[in-house]
Every structure is written in C-alpha cells, then in structure tokens.
Write a protein that binds this DNA or RNA. Structure first.
Lengths: 128, 128
DNA sequence: TTAAAGTAGATGCATCTGCATGTATGTGGG
DNA sequence: CCCACATACATGCAGATGCATCTACTTTAA
C-alpha cells in the first residue's frame, strides 16, 4: 500500500507538471486503442480496468466531453453502446505515454533490476 | 496497481460486511495506539500514513465526531495540537482488527508463503 | 525588536467517488 | 406468448478528495 502510494504520487506529480489529464484516463484510452476497431463495450472496459460501473459511466462522460472518445449505439443489444476512441483520443494517449513511460522508468524501472521486476510481477500476480 | 485494487476490494468488502468504518481510519488509530501516551501531532500522523494534510485534517474531524479521538492543545507550540485516542477509539481499533487481521490473512497471507511474503516486502521497499 | 519567512493546521470550492436506485432492454421457463 | 428475473448503463445524493488559500503562531536575522 505504501509503495503504491509513493510511486503513484511521483507519477502523478510528473503528470501535473506536464499538464496532463488524470492518470486514470490513460488506462481506458489504452484498452480502447488495443481493442479491435478501437472500441469496447463499457462492461468490457470495466472488467479490464477494475473501474466500478458508476465510475466508468461518468469517466466516459468526461472523455466524451473532451472529445477523446465517442459513444455509438450497438445494433445487437439495445441496452448497450460502443465506446470508440477518436483520433484526438489516440493522440492524447500517445502524448500521455511520452510522460508516463519515462515516469514509470524513473520511479519503478530504475529501482529494480530486470530479474527483480519479474519477481515482483510474479508475486503480485498471486494476489489477484 | 491491479493487485492492490483486488486485495483492497476484498478487504473493504469484509469491512462492509462487518459494518465497520472506512479502512483508512484504522491506520490513524493504529499509529495513535502505538505512540507514546496514545497521542501524536497531526503532522506526525501525516508523515507516518502518507495522508495529505488537508485529508488528515478532515479525517480527524470525523474521528472526533465519532468520539474515537480528541484534540488537545499543546503547550509548547501554539500552532499545534495533540490528537489523542480515546478509550472508545482503542476499542474500535481492536474491533476493526478482529476483521482486518483475518481478512489480511485470507486475501494476502493465504496466497503467499512466508518466504514469498518477505521477498515481496523487500521488493516493494525498494519503491518507496 | 521587529519584519520577513516558515510551519501547523483549517477551509471554500470544484470535482470525484460510493451507494442505492432508476430506466431500458434482453432472456428463459412455464 | 409473457412475466419474472437478469443485464447494461445512468443518475441523485451524500460524503471524500485535490487544490489553493487562509489564519494563526514561531523562528530567523538584521
């Protein structure tokens, strides 16, 4: 818990310094960019990111308002919708990564050897 | 991040099931119980828990309102105050621990061997 | 001694979160 | 076919958080 606090605080400081949106936005944009056709259903994003349903719903609102994603009706299921990344959204994800990547490297990578990082990942995986 | 999410969600579910106050309260109560005479200055709690100053200030308000701690003036420094655990506060910490301890054991302890836990702690310490 | 700078803590405001619940659509058993 | 139940997502409300700033007291240094 403390380690996560420390690391997160440092990364968020880097984000603030670069005037970037909240860190959490990255995860959603990333999942969308990875996904087929750059789109996912909200419940799929929810499963991938561990965001609570009501939080995701409102996070999508904010992303829409910033023009980073758009909602699209899905034919097969009248209850559902697609969340689609826009070009602006892809560009923003890339811009965020230009801070995020080096930040992770500085605050995590630089403190662990390759072997240690693998070990850590393996240990943490046991907790999920 | 994901591991912490998962574990925390499980522990918080246990807390909710036991109708306990937010998990964060525990850390403050614990630091106070550990401390000499059961009291600390807010800035000391801040350093120990990584709580932001403004969050701690209001968290203390809530603890006071529940009768778990009380504020006391400190003679030496007119700007400062002591935060002192009450008997109710000590009892609450114990009650919380009766859920928290087993919960940690179930969601963390049971998934790691003694050696793995030590390894994990050592790796995470490098990130602080 | 006294003004400038520092430290301890509180607080107004906007945003975010958790919780419960709402609306709309889909599905499966009788 | 249809009604009870399930699923997908939204939302009102209360409380929590982040940010900037404020007040009050202390220390420093000329």
């Amino acid at each position: 818990m403390r380690a996560r606090e420390s690391v997160l605080a440092r990364i968020e400081a880097d984000f603030k310094a670069a005037s970037l949106p909240p860190l959490g936005w990255y995860d959603v944009l990333w999942e969308l960019v990875q996904a087929d056709e750059g789109r996912l259903r909200p419940f799929e994003i929810e499963a991938r990111t561990l965001l609570a349903q009501y939080n995701l719903s409102r996070l999508i609102d904010r992303l829409v308002k910033e023009g980073l994603v758009r909602r699209e009706a899905v034919g097969a299921d009248g209850r559902g919708q697609w969340v689609v990344v826009t070009e602006t959204g892809r560009a923003m994800r890339e811009r965020m990564w230009r801070t995020y990547g080096p930040s992770i490297e500085a605050h995590v990578g630089a403190r662990l050897s390759e072997a240690e990082a693998k070990q850590l990942a393996a240990l943490l995986a046991k907790l999920r």
